[in-house]
Amino acid sequence: MANAIAFLIVCLPSITLSYIVVCLISPWGTCTRCRPGGRNRTCRACNGSGKRPRLGWQIYVYLRRLHRDGTR
């Protein structure tokens, strides 16, 4: 059990940094509601574009706006 916990502690920062890099390089991912059939013009999640911002990008934008509004 200790080996598994140590392995997770070692791998977690690299996985997190990899996801941050992916979100910075390509902030738009495919829409999870439209993915099976491609674009769906009636999808309210992506407004029919087939692309949605990734969760990491949404968190980044939220924190950036929070900082901007708090330092005015």
Rank of each mutant, 00 (worst) to 15 (best):
I9A: 14
L8P: 05
A2H: 15
Y19I: 10
C23H: 04
A4Q: 11
I5P: 00
V21H: 12
P53L: 03
L8F: 13
C11W: 14
T42Q: 06
C31Q: 03
R33L: 06
G56N: 02
R65E: 10
G48T: 04
L24F: 15
A6E: 14
I20V: 11
C43E: 02
R72T: 13
G29N: 07
L24Q: 15
L55W: 13
R44Y: 08
R44F: 08
C43S: 04
C46H: 01
S14Y: 08
L17S: 13
L66W: 11
P53R: 02
S14H: 08
I5V: 13
A4C: 08
P13T: 04
Y62R: 09
C11E: 11
T30D: 12
R54K: 10
G48H: 01
M1F: 10
D69H: 13
A6G: 03
A6K: 06
L55S: 12
A45I: 11
Y62L: 14
R35E: 11
T71H: 07
T71Y: 04
I15Y: 12
A2Q: 07
R41F: 14
N40Y: 03
A2W: 05
G70H: 04
C11K: 12
N40F: 03
Y60Q: 04
G70K: 03
R68K: 08
F7G: 04
A4M: 05
R52M: 14
G56S: 04
A2V: 09
G38D: 03
R52Q: 14
R54F: 13
R35N: 07
S26C: 11
Q58M: 13
Y62F: 13
R44A: 03
Y19K: 09
T32W: 06
P13R: 01
S26Y: 11
L66D: 08
W28I: 04
R68V: 07
S26V: 11
K51A: 07
T30R: 06
C43Y: 02
L12F: 15
C46G: 02
I5L: 14
S14M: 12
L66N: 02
A2R: 14
N3G: 10
S26A: 10
R52T: 15
R35G: 02
R54L: 12
W57D: 02
I9T: 09
G70R: 01
A2T: 11
Y19G: 09
F7M: 09
I20R: 09
R65V: 07
R41N: 09
K51L: 09
A2E: 11
L63K: 10
C31A: 10
T30N: 10
R35S: 05
Y60L: 04
F7V: 02
V61A: 08
W28N: 01
R35C: 05
L17Y: 14
G50K: 00
